[in-house]
């Protein structure tokens, strides 16, 4: 059985696993970008009330390996509260929390590092508040932030593989199960690697292109 035979023969299982991976990624990405973006904005605006607590939680989270956090929410936390939650939701929640704080950190950092001199220039040249936000702040902030956010989202998609360890039937777990039946690890994991390359490389390439094309030297030098 070569790699194509495996893919063709097991394509319903692979597609099912792929659908779970995509669903998981979609939840993590959307929650991270929406809630994390909002948290980052709030953190930059209300540094004491939101910024510091969010930074503290992010700092604490960064000290816990993803797998430990995932297992902790899957086993001890559910045992403590006498709950049984579908592992898909546990994985989605765990990875979303990580993504939310990572996105918030990036957004807050870019906003807080925004060069004040461009706002002063906007003031003394009489730009309206609307012009200052939409013609100066937003374009500069987006150019700084988008490449980093794209790379982060690719990394988050890769972390969905951890969900297989708590029995989420995502693509890696499907590949493991098929491998257990046919024992063709080279073909199966190569196919999996190629799949992730095909998804990740265009996003990474786009992020690098954005970075070189739009991230200008903000120091004016």
């Amino acid at each position: 059985m070569n790699v194509w035979d495996i893919l063709i023969h097991y394509h319903p299982a692979f597609l099912k696993g792929l659908a779970v991976t995509i669903q998981l990624s979609a939840i993590i990405w959307s929650s991270g970008l929406i809630i994390g973006g909002a948290l980052g904005l709030a953190g930059a605006k209300f540094n004491c009330a939101v910024g510091w607590p969010s930074r503290f939680l992010s700092f604490m989270l960064s000290g816990v390996p993803v797998l430990v956090f995932l297992f902790w929410l899957h086993y001890p936390a559910q045992a403590m509260f006498d709950l049984v939650i579908n592992p898909f939701y546990t994985a989605a929640l765990t990875l979303s929390i990580i993504n939310i704080f990572a996105v918030a950190d990036q957004v807050r950092g870019v906003l807080q590092d925004f060069p004040r001199q461009y706002l002063i220039a906007a003031k003394v040249t009489g730009l309206t508040r609307r012009q200052t936000i939409f013609r100066i702040q937003l374009p500069l902030v987006l150019r700084q932030i988008i490449p980093g956010l794209l790379l982060l989202q690719v990394t988050m998609m890769h972390t969905t593989l951890f969900a297989s360890l708590i029995s989420v039937e995502e693509i890696f777990r499907v590949a493991q199960r098929i491998n257990a039946q046919v024992y063709r690890p080279v073909e199966i994991y190569t196919a999996l690697g190629v799949f992730f390359l095909l998804v990740s490389l265009p996003i990474n390439g786009f992020a690098f292109w954005l970075k070189t094309r739009f991230t200008r030297n903000l120091s004016e030098q």
Binding site: I120, A121, L140, R216
Partner: peptide
Amino acid sequence: FQSLFLWPH
């Protein structure tokens, strides 16, 4: 100003 504050984009 001495630093010119031209918008880089």
